[in-house]
Design a protein around this nucleic acid. Structure first.
Length: 484
RNA sequence: GGCGGUAUCGUCUAGGGGACUAGGACGGAGCCCUCUCAAGGCUCAAACACGGGUUCGAAUCCCGUUACCGCUACCA
């Protein structure tokens, strides 16, 4: 097999949609596995709807996901001349004809036939015009569109995901390939570009299945090799309908801002409509390249389940080394004003170990930052519910915290084992369960009743900060002796 | 309406005629671990759309029905 050439061809009319991202991913995986080229084409022929901004969003989205493309980006709008030349070739070979019917006439005829309950088909009246009449109108400057003359027979192909698909040509209308303003229709532009880009496999959403016979007909009429096709299923929302804005986030950028890791996004997307077979779920891009086969592509639409994405993100968060997470976490740290870039750089090793500590409990990158405050700021607020539950008796608690402080002040070295020994000893001495002193301590240290293991917290916090927190707590409790 | 596509737990899926008492994962319920919460481990509830064939035997093959989706533009 020659090195395959595939392309992802989004139209820049919004952001990079998760469905598009997944189609791009499948194209990319195929190419990286088989050693070919993955090309990017921006279908910006619809100038009214295309924006520079959304083109940028597409680039950014693909880059974020780690899907790099080969060769220069092709902008479809720049190929207008070739599209027109290809239409000329169609005309020259008598595979297409000029149609002088106006859009308004067509619209009216369509309405009339449909009113009779019949389905409208173009009646080829312009194809029956004598040659001299056509010439007369052309030289008179009458506007015309160009229609492709669909031949008799049947058009079929073996789809890589669906197997054999066949369309009787009689069901295909003589479709317009060139508008009366001289611009090409989608199917024409796509085929012209795919030929020029020497695309060998067209992998796209299955909403294009019914465009495929028309396109195959165009390849043949243009005397070009017909590529292979693979139509991948769509992505639907939780209600089973096509994914759209009302389902919430649909752009990959949205997930990026929600603290989703690109590796998790890509992993999750890959599993929506593809399976490596067996029970494999959590994978890296590298592993997916190894495992990717079009056989594993699903035929039916998949529903986007944000819950599973969250879980997937947690899995990737736990498995990603802190050094890789750091560039993603740091901007959020700075935003939260927990530390300056310089401070983080100075204590890099400590900082990385803190990320390792907090990532286990996180489902989004933001969760790491959300848990980080106690390790940075000098003083922390106490959550109402935590204080009420674990600091019931202010006097006794203050007394307990003082005793804890005393022990921790002298623990050597500042590591989990001696700390644990010291605190369990204290618990024994007071005749209480260890939990009865860990929880009040946790509240004093973090202001909440949830955190990593108490000794890990102590180590990460450092002795000075920990003792300060205990002093603060004692003082706070002293100020409200009858609280709760 | 016409044409095309699809159909396994709520969701993502494994399954390619006997290995199926239909497996895994998310989510749900419960238990264990445990200083809390996660993570992890274990257990439970939960599906072959329906009807006909073919076959000794069908979730797997064929045909219908139903449902859903897509296309049906001088949109992409």
């Amino acid at each position: 097999m020659l090195p395959p050439r595939l392309r992802f061809a989004p139209s820049p009319t919004g952001y990079l949609h998760v469905g598009g991202a997944r189609t791009a991913l499948f194209n990319w995986l195929f190419v990286r596995k088989h050693g070919g080229q993955f090309l990017l084409r921006i279908e910006d022929t619809d100038k009214a709807r295309s924006t520079e901004e959304s083109t940028r969003a597409i680039f950014e989205g693909l880059e974020w996901l780690g899907l790099d493309w080969d060769e220069d980006v092709v902008h479809q709008g720049a190929n207008l001349e070739r599209h027109q030349q290809d239409v000329e070739r169609l005309l020259a070979r008598n595979a297409a004809y000029r149609c002088f019917c106006t859009a308004a006439e067509l619209e009216e005829r369509r309405r009339a036939t449909e009113a009779r309950g019949e389905s409208f088909r173009y009646d080829r009246r312009c194809d029956r015009l004598p040659a001299d009449e056509v010439a007369r109108r052309v030289s008179a400057g009458v506007a015309f569109a160009v229609r492709f003359r669909v031949p008799d027979g049947e058009t079929s192909w073996t789809d890589l995901v669906h197997g054999l698909i066949a369309f009787p040509n009689k069901d295909i209308d003589d479709f317009v390939v060139l508008r009366s303003d001289g611009t090409p229709i989608y199917n024409m532009a796509v085929v012209s570009d795919d030929i020029a880009m020497r695309i060998t496999l067209v992998m796209r959403g299955d909403d294009h299945i019914s465009n495929t016979p028309k396109q195959i007909l165009l390849y043949r009429a243009l005397d070009a090799d017909v590529p292979r096709f693979a139509h991948v299923p769509m992505i639907h929302g939780l209600d089973g309908k096509k994914l759209s804005k009302r389902h919430g986030a649909t752009a990959v950028g949205d997930y990026r801002h929600q603290g989703i890791l690109p590796s998790a996004m890509v992993n999750f997307l890959a599993l929506l409509g593809w399976s490596p077979g067996g029970d494999r779920e959590v994978m890296t891009l590298e592993e997916m390249i190894q495992l990717f086969e079009t056989d594993g592509l699903q035929k039916k639409a998949a529903i986007f389940d944000p819950k599973k994405l969250e879980w997937m993100n947690g899995q990737h968060l736990s498995r990603t080394p802190a050094s890789d997470l750091e560039p993603l976490v740091t901007p959020l740290m700075l935003d939260a004003k927990l530390a300056t870039a310089v401070e983080l750089a100075e204590r890099r090793d400590w900082y990385l170990s803190l990320i390792d500590l907090l990532k286990i409990r996180a489902r989004a990158i933001d969760d790491i930052v959300g848990q980080a405050a106690p390790y940075f700021v000098p003083d922390i607020p106490y959550e109402d519910q935590a204080a009420r539950q674990h600091w019931k008796d202010p006097r006794a608690t203050a007394d307990l915290l003082r005793a804890i402080r005393e022990r921790l002040a002298t623990v050597e070295p500042w590591t989990p084992e001696p700390m644990e020994r010291a605190l369990r000893e204290l618990a024994d001495q007071r005749g209480v369960a260890a939990g009865k002193i860990f929880q009040p301590l946790r509240v004093a240290l973090t202001g909440t009743s949830v955190s990593p293991g108490i000794f890990e917290v102590l180590v990460a916090m450092g002795r000075a900060l920990a003792l300060r927190r205990l002093d603060n707590a004692v003082r706070w409790l002293g100020e409200r002796p009858e609280a709760a």
